[in-house]
Nucleic acid binder design. Structure first.
Length: 575
RNA sequence: GGACCUGUGGUGCAGCCUGGAGUGCACGCCGCCCUGUCAAGGCGGAGGUCGCGGGUUCAAAUCCCGUCAGGUCCGCCA
Protein backbone atom coordinates (compact mmCIF):
# COMPACT_ATOMS: atom_id res chain seq x y z
CA UNK A 1 0.00 0.00 0.00
CA UNK A 2 2.98 2.27 0.55
CA UNK A 3 6.62 2.21 -0.44
CA UNK A 4 8.03 4.76 2.00
CA UNK A 5 6.94 6.45 5.16
CA UNK A 6 6.28 10.17 5.02
CA UNK A 7 9.25 11.26 7.09
CA UNK A 8 11.67 9.05 5.19
CA UNK A 9 11.64 10.81 1.82
CA UNK A 10 15.08 12.24 1.03
CA UNK A 11 17.01 13.72 -1.88
CA UNK A 12 18.35 10.24 -2.67
CA UNK A 13 14.82 9.30 -3.74
CA UNK A 14 14.60 12.08 -6.32
CA UNK A 15 13.16 10.77 -9.56
CA UNK A 16 11.51 7.76 -7.91
CA UNK A 17 7.82 7.16 -8.12
CA UNK A 18 6.76 6.43 -4.53
CA UNK A 19 3.57 5.84 -2.58
CA UNK A 20 3.01 7.21 0.91
CA UNK A 21 0.05 6.98 3.27
CA UNK A 22 -0.96 9.18 6.16
CA UNK A 23 -3.13 11.92 7.50
CA UNK A 24 -3.57 15.41 6.09
CA UNK A 25 -1.83 17.91 8.31
CA UNK A 26 -1.95 21.34 6.74
CA UNK A 27 -3.05 22.19 3.24
CA UNK A 28 -2.17 25.42 1.51
CA UNK A 29 -4.21 26.24 -1.56
CA UNK A 30 -3.30 28.85 -4.13
CA UNK A 31 -6.38 29.14 -6.27
CA UNK A 32 -7.38 26.39 -8.62
CA UNK A 33 -3.91 25.81 -10.03
CA UNK A 34 -1.73 24.86 -7.09
CA UNK A 35 -2.09 23.33 -3.65
CA UNK A 36 0.30 21.97 -1.06
CA UNK A 37 -0.79 19.11 1.16
CA UNK A 38 1.31 18.07 4.17
CA UNK A 39 0.94 14.34 4.61
CA UNK A 40 1.83 13.08 8.07
CA UNK A 41 2.56 9.75 9.68
CA UNK A 42 4.56 8.96 12.79
CA UNK A 43 7.84 9.43 10.96
CA UNK A 44 7.16 12.98 9.92
CA UNK A 45 5.67 15.12 7.20
CA UNK A 46 6.13 15.19 3.43
CA UNK A 47 4.85 17.95 1.18
CA UNK A 48 2.69 16.89 -1.75
CA UNK A 49 2.34 19.38 -4.58
CA UNK A 50 -1.00 19.19 -6.33
CA UNK A 51 -1.34 21.05 -9.61
CA UNK A 52 -5.02 21.90 -9.54
CA UNK A 53 -7.49 21.94 -6.69
CA UNK A 54 -7.77 19.13 -4.21
CA UNK A 55 -10.74 18.38 -2.01
CA UNK A 56 -9.13 17.13 1.17
CA UNK A 57 -9.45 18.42 4.74
CA UNK A 58 -7.50 18.11 7.96
CA UNK A 59 -7.00 14.51 9.10
CA UNK A 60 -8.35 12.94 5.92
CA UNK A 61 -6.56 9.63 5.41
CA UNK A 62 -4.76 9.59 2.07
CA UNK A 63 -2.70 7.40 -0.15
CA UNK A 64 -0.55 9.56 -2.40
CA UNK A 65 1.47 8.27 -5.32
CA UNK A 66 3.93 10.83 -6.56
CA UNK A 67 7.35 11.51 -8.00
CA UNK A 68 10.02 12.66 -5.58
CA UNK A 69 11.49 15.95 -6.76
CA UNK A 70 14.01 18.36 -5.40
CA UNK A 71 12.30 21.55 -4.29
CA UNK A 72 12.95 24.62 -6.44
CA UNK A 73 15.75 26.71 -5.02
CA UNK A 74 14.56 29.09 -2.35
CA UNK A 75 11.60 26.92 -1.37
CA UNK A 76 13.31 24.34 0.81
CA UNK A 77 12.26 24.08 4.44
CA UNK A 78 15.00 23.35 6.93
CA UNK A 79 12.39 22.83 9.66
CA UNK A 80 11.45 19.52 8.02
CA UNK A 81 13.61 16.43 7.64
CA UNK A 82 11.99 16.06 4.22
CA UNK A 83 12.35 19.78 3.52
CA UNK A 84 14.58 19.44 0.48
CA UNK A 85 12.10 17.33 -1.46
CA UNK A 86 8.42 17.15 -2.34
CA UNK A 87 6.06 14.94 -4.31
CA UNK A 88 4.89 15.92 -7.78
CA UNK A 89 2.36 14.55 -10.25
CA UNK A 90 0.39 13.27 -7.31
CA UNK A 91 -2.37 10.72 -7.57
CA UNK A 92 -4.38 11.29 -4.40
CA UNK A 93 -6.67 8.56 -3.11
CA UNK A 94 -8.89 9.45 -0.18
CA UNK A 95 -8.84 6.30 1.97
CA UNK A 96 -11.14 7.92 4.49
CA UNK A 97 -12.66 11.33 5.09
CA UNK A 98 -12.61 12.88 8.54
CA UNK A 99 -14.51 15.46 10.49
CA UNK A 100 -12.44 18.38 11.74
CA UNK A 101 -10.66 17.13 14.87
CA UNK A 102 -11.59 18.71 18.21
CA UNK A 103 -8.02 19.89 18.55
CA UNK A 104 -4.99 20.19 16.33
CA UNK A 105 -2.73 17.19 15.85
CA UNK A 106 0.26 19.32 16.64
CA UNK A 107 2.59 19.53 19.63
CA UNK A 108 2.64 23.30 19.42
CA UNK A 109 -0.96 23.54 20.53
CA UNK A 110 -1.61 23.11 24.23
CA UNK A 111 -4.83 21.25 24.94
CA UNK A 112 -6.46 20.60 28.29
CA UNK A 113 -5.98 17.06 29.48
CA UNK A 114 -9.68 16.10 29.76
CA UNK A 115 -10.16 16.96 26.08
CA UNK A 116 -7.10 14.96 25.14
CA UNK A 117 -8.23 11.96 27.15
CA UNK A 118 -11.74 12.02 25.76
CA UNK A 119 -10.32 11.89 22.23
CA UNK A 120 -7.19 9.98 23.10
CA UNK A 121 -7.07 8.33 19.66
CA UNK A 122 -6.47 11.78 18.18
CA UNK A 123 -4.09 12.81 20.92
CA UNK A 124 -2.05 9.68 20.22
CA UNK A 125 -1.47 10.92 16.68
CA UNK A 126 0.41 13.89 18.04
CA UNK A 127 4.17 13.63 17.67
CA UNK A 128 4.83 13.77 21.40
CA UNK A 129 2.59 10.85 22.21
CA UNK A 130 4.02 8.88 19.31
CA UNK A 131 7.49 9.60 20.63
CA UNK A 132 6.64 8.73 24.23
CA UNK A 133 4.96 5.41 23.53
CA UNK A 134 7.61 4.36 21.06
CA UNK A 135 10.26 5.31 23.62
CA UNK A 136 8.45 3.09 26.07
CA UNK A 137 8.62 0.20 23.64
CA UNK A 138 12.36 0.80 23.26
CA UNK A 139 12.86 0.78 27.01
CA UNK A 140 10.84 -2.41 27.37
CA UNK A 141 12.93 -4.01 24.69
CA UNK A 142 16.21 -2.94 26.30
CA UNK A 143 15.07 -4.34 29.62
CA UNK A 144 14.02 -7.65 28.09
CA UNK A 145 17.34 -7.94 26.28
CA UNK A 146 19.26 -7.16 29.45
CA UNK A 147 17.35 -9.71 31.50
CA UNK A 148 17.62 -12.32 28.79
CA UNK A 149 21.37 -11.72 28.55
CA UNK A 150 21.60 -12.34 32.28
CA UNK A 151 19.89 -15.73 31.92
CA UNK A 152 16.53 -14.66 33.28
CA UNK A 153 13.48 -16.61 32.16
CA UNK A 154 10.31 -14.68 31.30
CA UNK A 155 7.25 -16.23 32.94
CA UNK A 156 3.71 -14.88 33.15
CA UNK A 157 1.76 -15.07 36.39
CA UNK A 158 -2.01 -14.95 36.95
CA UNK A 159 -4.06 -11.78 37.04
CA UNK A 160 -6.93 -13.61 38.70
CA UNK A 161 -5.36 -14.58 41.99
CA UNK A 162 -6.11 -15.00 45.64
CA UNK A 163 -6.37 -12.01 47.94
CA UNK A 164 -3.10 -11.38 49.75
CA UNK A 165 -4.20 -9.05 52.53
CA UNK A 166 -0.94 -7.18 52.86
CA UNK A 167 -0.22 -3.64 51.90
CA UNK A 168 -2.27 -1.92 49.30
CA UNK A 169 -5.96 -2.33 48.57
CA UNK A 170 -6.71 -4.87 45.89
CA UNK A 171 -9.32 -4.89 43.14
CA UNK A 172 -11.85 -7.69 43.48
CA UNK A 173 -13.38 -9.68 40.63
CA UNK A 174 -16.61 -11.56 41.33
CA UNK A 175 -16.65 -15.23 40.39
CA UNK A 176 -19.55 -16.44 38.25
CA UNK A 177 -18.87 -20.12 38.88
CA UNK A 178 -18.46 -19.63 42.61
CA UNK A 179 -21.09 -17.10 43.47
CA UNK A 180 -20.32 -14.93 46.42
CA UNK A 181 -16.59 -15.54 46.03
CA UNK A 182 -14.00 -13.26 44.48
CA UNK A 183 -10.63 -13.22 42.85
CA UNK A 184 -8.20 -10.41 43.51
CA UNK A 185 -6.15 -8.63 40.91
CA UNK A 186 -2.54 -8.73 42.11
CA UNK A 187 -0.94 -5.61 43.55
CA UNK A 188 2.24 -7.31 42.37
CA UNK A 189 3.29 -10.87 41.48
CA UNK A 190 5.14 -11.03 44.80
CA UNK A 191 3.96 -14.40 46.08
CA UNK A 192 3.75 -15.95 42.63
CA UNK A 193 7.39 -15.23 41.92
CA UNK A 194 8.47 -16.64 45.24
CA UNK A 195 6.59 -19.83 44.35
CA UNK A 196 8.52 -19.85 41.06
CA UNK A 197 11.73 -19.89 43.12
CA UNK A 198 10.48 -22.93 45.01
CA UNK A 199 9.63 -24.31 41.56
CA UNK A 200 13.24 -24.14 40.48
CA UNK A 201 13.16 -21.21 38.04
CA UNK A 202 16.19 -19.62 39.60
CA UNK A 203 16.05 -16.42 37.55
CA UNK A 204 12.55 -15.21 36.71
CA UNK A 205 11.38 -11.93 35.28
CA UNK A 206 8.43 -10.39 33.53
CA UNK A 207 7.20 -6.95 32.66
CA UNK A 208 4.16 -7.36 34.85
CA UNK A 209 0.95 -5.39 35.07
CA UNK A 210 0.17 -4.58 38.70
CA UNK A 211 -3.11 -3.25 40.05
CA UNK A 212 -3.65 -1.24 43.20
CA UNK A 213 -6.92 0.32 44.27
CA UNK A 214 -5.32 3.36 45.88
CA UNK A 215 -5.78 7.06 45.16
CA UNK A 216 -4.13 8.26 41.96
CA UNK A 217 -1.34 10.78 41.57
CA UNK A 218 0.87 12.23 38.89
CA UNK A 219 3.13 9.21 39.34
CA UNK A 220 0.45 6.62 40.21
CA UNK A 221 -2.24 4.88 38.18
CA UNK A 222 -4.48 1.98 39.21
CA UNK A 223 -2.63 -0.21 36.75
CA UNK A 224 1.03 0.12 36.11
CA UNK A 225 3.88 -1.96 34.78
CA UNK A 226 6.87 -3.24 36.64
CA UNK A 227 9.98 -5.06 35.73
CA UNK A 228 9.44 -7.84 38.22
CA UNK A 229 12.28 -10.20 38.93
CA UNK A 230 13.29 -12.80 41.45
CA UNK A 231 16.30 -15.04 41.68
CA UNK A 232 17.69 -17.83 43.81
CA UNK A 233 21.16 -18.50 45.21
CA UNK A 234 22.21 -14.86 44.99
CA UNK A 235 23.41 -12.14 47.28
CA UNK A 236 21.77 -8.76 47.65
CA UNK A 237 24.68 -7.24 45.73
CA UNK A 238 24.18 -9.63 42.84
CA UNK A 239 20.49 -8.77 42.58
CA UNK A 240 21.27 -5.07 42.54
CA UNK A 241 23.84 -5.70 39.82
CA UNK A 242 21.22 -7.44 37.65
CA UNK A 243 18.82 -4.53 38.05
CA UNK A 244 21.53 -1.95 37.55
CA UNK A 245 22.42 -3.54 34.23
CA UNK A 246 18.80 -3.33 33.09
CA UNK A 247 18.25 0.29 34.07
CA UNK A 248 21.58 1.45 32.67
CA UNK A 249 20.77 -0.27 29.38
CA UNK A 250 17.33 1.35 29.44
CA UNK A 251 18.85 4.79 30.04
CA UNK A 252 21.36 4.28 27.27
CA UNK A 253 18.71 3.28 24.76
CA UNK A 254 16.44 6.12 25.80
CA UNK A 255 18.96 8.93 26.05
CA UNK A 256 21.95 7.76 24.07
CA UNK A 257 24.15 8.14 27.12
CA UNK A 258 25.00 5.43 29.60
CA UNK A 259 24.87 6.93 33.10
CA UNK A 260 27.88 6.48 35.32
CA UNK A 261 28.18 4.04 38.18
CA UNK A 262 25.15 3.89 40.45
CA UNK A 263 25.87 5.15 43.92
CA UNK A 264 24.78 3.33 47.03
CA UNK A 265 23.83 5.02 50.28
CA UNK A 266 22.21 3.64 53.37
CA UNK A 267 18.69 4.50 54.34
CA UNK A 268 19.95 6.15 57.52
CA UNK A 269 22.35 8.37 55.56
CA UNK A 270 19.63 9.29 53.10
CA UNK A 271 17.27 10.38 55.83
CA UNK A 272 19.96 12.23 57.74
CA UNK A 273 21.48 14.11 54.82
CA UNK A 274 18.61 14.45 52.37
CA UNK A 275 15.60 14.10 54.64
CA UNK A 276 14.02 11.43 52.49
CA UNK A 277 14.45 7.82 51.49
CA UNK A 278 14.35 8.89 47.84
CA UNK A 279 17.08 11.50 47.58
CA UNK A 280 17.56 13.56 44.46
CA UNK A 281 21.35 13.64 44.02
CA UNK A 282 21.31 16.07 41.13
CA UNK A 283 21.94 18.94 43.51
CA UNK A 284 24.02 19.19 46.65
CA UNK A 285 22.17 21.06 49.43
CA UNK A 286 22.18 18.69 52.40
CA UNK A 287 20.53 18.82 55.78
CA UNK A 288 22.97 20.29 58.30
CA UNK A 289 22.72 19.14 61.90
CA UNK A 290 22.76 21.89 64.54
CA UNK A 291 21.31 19.85 67.38
CA UNK A 292 24.46 19.95 69.48
CA UNK A 293 24.77 23.71 69.09
CA UNK A 294 21.26 24.29 70.40
CA UNK A 295 21.20 21.57 73.06
CA UNK A 296 21.30 24.19 75.84
CA UNK A 297 19.49 26.96 73.99
CA UNK A 298 17.23 29.50 75.60
CA UNK A 299 15.46 30.05 72.29
CA UNK A 300 12.13 28.32 72.65
CA UNK A 301 11.74 27.71 68.93
CA UNK A 302 14.93 25.64 68.97
CA UNK A 303 14.34 23.69 72.19
CA UNK A 304 13.86 20.31 70.55
CA UNK A 305 15.73 16.99 70.22
CA UNK A 306 16.76 17.77 66.64
CA UNK A 307 17.68 21.04 65.00
CA UNK A 308 18.60 20.93 61.33
CA UNK A 309 19.24 23.55 58.70
CA UNK A 310 19.30 24.03 54.97
CA UNK A 311 21.46 26.60 53.25
CA UNK A 312 19.85 28.25 50.25
CA UNK A 313 22.54 29.94 48.21
CA UNK A 314 21.46 33.41 47.18
CA UNK A 315 18.27 33.03 49.20
CA UNK A 316 18.77 36.30 51.08
CA UNK A 317 17.00 37.97 48.18
CA UNK A 318 13.74 36.21 49.03
CA UNK A 319 10.92 38.67 49.66
CA UNK A 320 9.08 38.68 52.94
CA UNK A 321 6.03 37.14 51.28
CA UNK A 322 8.13 34.36 49.78
CA UNK A 323 9.57 33.68 53.23
CA UNK A 324 6.08 33.65 54.69
CA UNK A 325 5.10 31.09 52.07
CA UNK A 326 8.08 28.98 53.07
CA UNK A 327 6.99 29.11 56.70
CA UNK A 328 3.45 28.14 55.74
CA UNK A 329 4.76 25.29 53.62
CA UNK A 330 6.83 24.02 56.55
CA UNK A 331 3.80 24.17 58.81
CA UNK A 332 1.64 22.36 56.29
CA UNK A 333 4.26 19.63 56.28
CA UNK A 334 3.92 19.26 60.04
CA UNK A 335 6.57 21.58 61.45
CA UNK A 336 5.63 23.91 64.29
CA UNK A 337 7.45 26.65 62.46
CA UNK A 338 10.39 27.57 60.34
CA UNK A 339 13.17 29.93 61.31
CA UNK A 340 14.99 31.82 58.61
CA UNK A 341 18.22 33.79 58.64
CA UNK A 342 19.42 36.01 55.86
CA UNK A 343 23.19 36.07 55.88
CA UNK A 344 24.60 39.57 55.77
CA UNK A 345 28.05 41.08 55.76
CA UNK A 346 29.18 44.35 57.36
CA UNK A 347 32.82 45.41 57.19
CA UNK A 348 33.84 41.87 56.29
CA UNK A 349 32.01 40.35 59.23
CA UNK A 350 29.16 37.92 58.61
CA UNK A 351 25.92 38.45 60.46
CA UNK A 352 22.30 37.50 60.14
CA UNK A 353 19.10 39.31 59.46
CA UNK A 354 16.21 37.52 61.11
CA UNK A 355 13.35 38.13 63.53
CA UNK A 356 15.01 35.55 65.78
CA UNK A 357 18.46 37.08 65.67
CA UNK A 358 18.11 39.05 68.90
CA UNK A 359 17.35 35.83 70.83
CA UNK A 360 20.51 34.06 69.70
CA UNK A 361 23.67 33.92 71.73
CA UNK A 362 26.84 34.87 69.91
CA UNK A 363 27.94 31.23 70.02
CA UNK A 364 24.69 30.08 68.51
CA UNK A 365 24.84 32.65 65.72
CA UNK A 366 28.42 31.65 65.00
CA UNK A 367 27.44 27.98 64.93
CA UNK A 368 24.67 28.63 62.42
CA UNK A 369 27.08 30.47 60.14
CA UNK A 370 30.00 28.09 60.56
CA UNK A 371 28.26 24.75 60.24
CA UNK A 372 26.34 25.82 57.17
CA UNK A 373 29.41 27.39 55.59
CA UNK A 374 27.21 30.32 54.66
CA UNK A 375 28.34 33.41 52.87
CA UNK A 376 26.71 36.78 52.46
CA UNK A 377 23.54 36.58 50.38
CA UNK A 378 22.61 33.06 51.49
CA UNK A 379 19.47 32.10 53.35
CA UNK A 380 19.48 29.57 56.15
CA UNK A 381 16.26 27.88 57.18
CA UNK A 382 16.01 25.88 60.38
CA UNK A 383 13.45 23.43 61.70
CA UNK A 384 13.51 22.05 65.23
CA UNK A 385 11.44 19.09 66.38
CA UNK A 386 11.58 15.31 66.62
CA UNK A 387 14.27 13.80 64.38
CA UNK A 388 12.10 12.16 61.74
CA UNK A 389 9.79 15.17 61.43
CA UNK A 390 12.68 17.61 61.02
CA UNK A 391 14.20 15.41 58.34
CA UNK A 392 10.98 14.99 56.41
CA UNK A 393 10.06 18.70 56.50
CA UNK A 394 13.51 19.83 55.42
CA UNK A 395 13.71 17.02 52.90
CA UNK A 396 10.62 18.36 51.20
CA UNK A 397 11.78 21.98 51.42
CA UNK A 398 15.11 20.93 49.95
CA UNK A 399 13.38 19.72 46.80
CA UNK A 400 11.05 22.75 46.76
CA UNK A 401 14.01 25.12 46.95
CA UNK A 402 16.70 23.40 44.97
CA UNK A 403 15.04 20.71 42.92
CA UNK A 404 14.54 20.54 39.21
CA UNK A 405 11.71 18.70 37.48
CA UNK A 406 12.28 14.97 37.83
CA UNK A 407 12.65 14.51 34.11
CA UNK A 408 15.54 16.90 33.69
CA UNK A 409 18.89 15.29 33.28
CA UNK A 410 21.38 14.27 34.32
CA UNK A 411 20.07 10.88 35.35
CA UNK A 412 21.30 10.04 38.84
CA UNK A 413 20.38 6.58 39.93
CA UNK A 414 21.05 5.73 43.55
CA UNK A 415 20.59 2.56 45.55
CA UNK A 416 19.23 3.15 49.04
CA UNK A 417 20.06 0.14 51.17
CA UNK A 418 19.64 -1.14 54.71
CA UNK A 419 16.06 -0.02 55.21
CA UNK A 420 14.63 -0.71 58.62
CA UNK A 421 12.76 -4.00 58.83
CA UNK A 422 9.84 -2.34 60.56
CA UNK A 423 8.41 1.07 59.89
CA UNK A 424 6.92 2.16 63.18
CA UNK A 425 4.14 0.40 65.01
CA UNK A 426 0.45 -0.05 64.30
CA UNK A 427 -2.46 1.05 66.47
CA UNK A 428 -1.95 -1.95 68.74
CA UNK A 429 1.74 -1.26 69.17
CA UNK A 430 2.88 -4.08 66.91
CA UNK A 431 5.78 -3.41 64.54
CA UNK A 432 4.69 -3.08 60.92
CA UNK A 433 6.75 -4.45 58.07
CA UNK A 434 8.38 -1.66 56.12
CA UNK A 435 8.67 -3.70 52.92
CA UNK A 436 6.69 -6.89 53.46
CA UNK A 437 6.52 -9.68 55.99
CA UNK A 438 8.92 -11.92 54.06
CA UNK A 439 11.86 -9.54 54.11
CA UNK A 440 15.03 -11.04 55.57
CA UNK A 441 16.44 -9.15 58.54
CA UNK A 442 20.03 -8.01 58.33
CA UNK A 443 22.10 -10.89 59.77
CA UNK A 444 23.98 -8.57 62.13
CA UNK A 445 20.69 -7.37 63.63
CA UNK A 446 18.88 -10.69 63.88
CA UNK A 447 19.66 -11.00 67.58
CA UNK A 448 17.68 -7.83 68.33
CA UNK A 449 14.53 -9.03 66.56
CA UNK A 450 12.79 -9.66 69.88
CA UNK A 451 14.54 -7.17 72.17
CA UNK A 452 14.57 -4.09 69.92
CA UNK A 453 12.69 -4.82 66.71
CA UNK A 454 12.51 -1.23 65.50
CA UNK A 455 16.32 -1.08 65.35
CA UNK A 456 16.60 -4.10 63.06
CA UNK A 457 17.74 -3.39 59.53
CA UNK A 458 16.38 -5.36 56.62
CA UNK A 459 18.09 -6.76 53.58
CA UNK A 460 15.95 -4.50 51.47
CA UNK A 461 16.85 -1.82 48.98
CA UNK A 462 15.22 0.84 46.84
CA UNK A 463 16.29 2.18 43.48
CA UNK A 464 15.83 5.94 43.18
CA UNK A 465 16.21 8.11 40.09
CA UNK A 466 16.24 11.91 40.40
CA UNK A 467 14.14 11.84 43.54
CA UNK A 468 11.57 9.37 42.27
CA UNK A 469 11.36 5.93 43.82
CA UNK A 470 11.56 3.54 40.92
CA UNK A 471 11.19 0.36 42.88
CA UNK A 472 12.22 -1.78 45.76
CA UNK A 473 13.31 -5.27 46.56
CA UNK A 474 14.67 -7.50 49.24
CA UNK A 475 16.21 -10.79 50.17
CA UNK A 476 13.30 -12.95 51.30
CA UNK A 477 13.04 -15.18 54.30
CA UNK A 478 13.30 -18.78 53.11
CA UNK A 479 13.70 -20.47 56.51
CA UNK A 480 10.66 -21.25 58.58
CA UNK A 481 12.27 -20.49 61.93
CA UNK A 482 13.22 -16.94 60.95
CA UNK A 483 9.85 -16.38 59.36
CA UNK A 484 8.18 -17.45 62.59
CA UNK A 485 10.27 -14.98 64.59
CA UNK A 486 9.38 -12.12 62.22
CA UNK A 487 5.70 -13.01 62.33
CA UNK A 488 5.93 -13.18 66.13
CA UNK A 489 7.53 -9.72 66.23
CA UNK A 490 4.66 -8.44 64.14
CA UNK A 491 2.13 -10.11 66.40
CA UNK A 492 1.02 -12.59 63.76
CA UNK A 493 0.35 -15.99 65.33
CA UNK A 494 0.55 -19.33 63.57
CA UNK A 495 -3.16 -19.41 62.87
CA UNK A 496 -3.21 -15.95 61.28
CA UNK A 497 -0.08 -16.70 59.28
CA UNK A 498 -1.67 -19.88 57.95
CA UNK A 499 -4.82 -17.97 57.03
CA UNK A 500 -3.03 -15.18 55.21
CA UNK A 501 -0.03 -16.86 53.65
CA UNK A 502 -0.74 -20.55 54.07
CA UNK A 503 -0.07 -21.53 50.50
CA UNK A 504 3.31 -19.82 50.50
CA UNK A 505 4.38 -21.22 53.85
CA UNK A 506 3.23 -24.63 52.71
CA UNK A 507 5.38 -24.41 49.61
CA UNK A 508 8.37 -23.32 51.69
CA UNK A 509 8.31 -26.65 53.54
CA UNK A 510 9.41 -28.41 50.38
CA UNK A 511 12.84 -26.99 49.83
CA UNK A 512 12.66 -23.25 49.30
CA UNK A 513 16.01 -21.93 48.04
CA UNK A 514 17.47 -18.73 49.42
CA UNK A 515 16.13 -16.03 47.13
CA UNK A 516 15.38 -12.39 46.66
CA UNK A 517 14.19 -9.98 44.05
CA UNK A 518 13.20 -6.59 42.93
CA UNK A 519 10.57 -4.69 41.00
CA UNK A 520 10.63 -1.24 39.48
CA UNK A 521 8.05 0.90 37.75
CA UNK A 522 8.41 1.12 34.01
CA UNK A 523 5.91 4.00 33.78
CA UNK A 524 8.00 6.22 36.04
CA UNK A 525 11.24 5.29 34.34
CA UNK A 526 9.90 6.02 30.87
CA UNK A 527 8.25 9.26 32.02
CA UNK A 528 11.60 10.51 33.29
CA UNK A 529 13.38 9.60 30.06
CA UNK A 530 10.56 11.16 28.04
CA UNK A 531 10.92 14.44 29.90
CA UNK A 532 7.48 14.12 31.45
CA UNK A 533 6.58 14.86 35.05
CA UNK A 534 3.45 12.77 34.78
CA UNK A 535 3.14 9.09 33.92
CA UNK A 536 -0.15 9.62 32.06
CA UNK A 537 1.99 11.01 29.24
CA UNK A 538 3.60 7.63 28.69
CA UNK A 539 0.43 5.54 29.01
CA UNK A 540 -1.80 5.08 25.98
CA UNK A 541 -5.10 5.14 27.84
CA UNK A 542 -4.66 6.49 31.37
CA UNK A 543 -7.32 7.24 33.94
CA UNK A 544 -8.02 10.54 35.63
CA UNK A 545 -7.22 11.24 39.25
CA UNK A 546 -10.68 9.98 40.23
CA UNK A 547 -10.09 6.73 38.36
CA UNK A 548 -12.35 7.52 35.42
CA UNK A 549 -11.62 6.67 31.81
CA UNK A 550 -12.92 9.68 29.90
CA UNK A 551 -12.81 7.82 26.59
CA UNK A 552 -14.87 4.76 27.49
CA UNK A 553 -16.80 6.15 30.42
CA UNK A 554 -15.48 3.44 32.74
CA UNK A 555 -16.29 2.67 35.44
CA UNK A 556 -19.90 2.12 34.49
CA UNK A 557 -22.94 0.22 35.73
CA UNK A 558 -23.38 -3.42 34.81
CA UNK A 559 -26.63 -4.61 33.27
CA UNK A 560 -28.90 -6.16 35.89
CA UNK A 561 -28.72 -9.55 34.18
CA UNK A 562 -24.93 -9.58 34.39
CA UNK A 563 -25.06 -8.58 38.04
CA UNK A 564 -27.46 -11.44 38.71
CA UNK A 565 -25.24 -13.89 36.89
CA UNK A 566 -22.33 -12.84 39.07
CA UNK A 567 -24.46 -13.04 42.18
CA UNK A 568 -23.78 -9.47 43.24
CA UNK A 569 -26.10 -6.64 44.13
CA UNK A 570 -25.25 -3.01 44.83
CA UNK A 571 -26.12 -1.74 48.27
CA UNK A 572 -27.08 1.89 48.92
CA UNK A 573 -24.13 3.92 50.05
CA UNK A 574 -24.11 4.38 53.80
CA UNK A 575 -24.37 8.01 54.76
C1' G B 1 -11.40 11.80 53.98
C1' G B 2 -8.79 16.85 53.45
C1' A B 3 -6.25 21.49 51.19
C1' C B 4 -5.41 24.44 46.99
C1' C B 5 -5.97 25.64 41.65
C1' U B 6 -8.95 25.38 37.10
C1' G B 7 -13.91 25.32 34.27
C1' U B 8 -15.98 31.41 29.10
C1' G B 9 -18.03 29.50 20.81
C1' G B 10 -14.46 23.46 18.18
C1' U B 11 -9.26 24.77 20.71
C1' G B 12 -6.18 28.05 23.87
C1' C B 13 -6.73 32.52 26.52
C1' A B 14 -8.34 37.56 28.42
C1' G B 15 -12.61 39.52 30.97
C1' C B 16 -13.99 38.12 37.39
C1' C B 17 -10.50 41.43 42.18
C1' U B 18 -13.81 46.74 41.54
C1' G B 19 -21.45 43.56 39.09
C1' G B 20 -23.95 47.24 34.10
C1' A B 21 -25.94 44.41 26.57
C1' G B 22 -21.92 37.54 25.43
C1' U B 23 -17.27 42.27 25.14
C1' G B 24 -12.04 41.04 23.20
C1' C B 25 -7.51 38.26 21.29
C1' A B 26 -5.21 34.01 18.79
C1' C B 27 -6.00 29.35 16.39
C1' G B 28 -9.55 26.27 14.06
C1' C B 29 -14.18 25.83 11.01
C1' C B 30 -17.36 27.50 6.49
C1' G B 31 -17.46 30.56 1.80
C1' C B 32 -14.87 33.55 -1.86
C1' C B 33 -9.99 35.24 -3.90
C1' C B 34 -4.96 33.86 -4.68
C1' U B 35 0.50 29.55 -9.34
C1' G B 36 5.75 28.29 -4.50
C1' U B 37 3.48 27.92 0.19
C1' C B 38 5.16 25.45 4.58
C1' A B 39 1.86 27.38 11.89
C1' A B 40 0.85 30.57 3.83
C1' G B 41 -1.78 35.26 2.71
C1' G B 42 -6.36 38.59 1.69
C1' C B 43 -11.75 39.41 2.27
C1' G B 44 -16.29 37.80 4.37
C1' G B 45 -19.16 34.56 7.67
C1' A B 46 -20.99 31.06 11.18
C1' G B 47 -20.40 29.36 15.93
C1' G B 48 -22.02 30.68 23.36
C1' U B 49 -26.77 27.02 28.76
C1' C B 50 -19.77 31.84 30.70
C1' G B 51 -19.60 23.47 33.99
C1' C B 52 -24.45 22.75 36.76
C1' G B 53 -28.02 24.35 40.75
C1' G B 54 -29.43 27.91 44.24
C1' G B 55 -28.85 32.79 46.62
C1' U B 56 -27.76 38.28 46.94
C1' U B 57 -28.98 42.41 43.60
C1' C B 58 -32.84 46.81 39.70
C1' A B 59 -28.91 43.95 37.21
C1' A B 60 -24.34 38.15 37.94
C1' A B 61 -19.39 35.19 33.47
C1' U B 62 -18.12 38.60 37.67
C1' C B 63 -20.18 38.45 44.61
C1' C B 64 -21.99 34.24 48.17
C1' C B 65 -23.44 28.96 49.07
C1' G B 66 -23.77 24.12 47.16
C1' U B 67 -22.56 20.60 43.50
C1' C B 68 -20.06 18.15 39.28
C1' A B 69 -15.68 17.52 36.36
C1' G B 70 -10.26 18.03 35.71
C1' G B 71 -5.39 18.95 37.97
C1' U B 72 -1.47 19.38 42.03
C1' C B 73 -0.68 17.90 46.88
C1' C B 74 -1.70 15.61 52.08
C1' G B 75 -3.79 11.10 53.94
C1' C B 76 -3.35 6.36 51.33
C1' C B 77 0.23 3.58 48.02
C1' A B 78 3.65 -3.75 52.32
Amino acid sequence: MRTLRCGEVRPLHVGERITVCGWVGKRREHGEHLAFVDLRDYTGIVQCVVEGSVDVRSEYVLQVEGTVSARPSGTTNDQLATGEVELHDCVVTVLNAAEPPPFAVDDRVEVDEPIRLKHRYIDLRRPKMQRNLRLRAQVNRAIRLAMDAQDFCEIETPLLWAPTPEGSREFAVPSRLHQGKFYSLPQSPQLAKQLLMVGGFDRYYQIARCLRDEDLRADRQFEFSQLDLECSFVTEQEIRAFVTEAVLDAAEVATGVRPGAVETITWAEAIDQYGTDKPDLRFEMRLIDLSADFAETEVKAFAAPTVKALKVEGGAEFSRSRLDQLVDRAKSLGAKGLAWFKVTEHDGVLGVDSPLDRFLTDAERAAVLDRTGASAGDLIVIVADEYRLVCSVLGTLRVDLGGAPVSEGPYRYVWVVDFPLFDGVDAEGRPEAAHHAFTMPHPEDLERLESDPLSVRAQSYDLVLNGWELGSGSIRIHRFDIQQRVFAAMGIDAEEAELRFGFLLGAFKYGAPPHGGFAFGIDRLVAIFAGENNIREVIAFPKTQSGADLLTGAPSHLPAAQMAELGIRPVPKAT
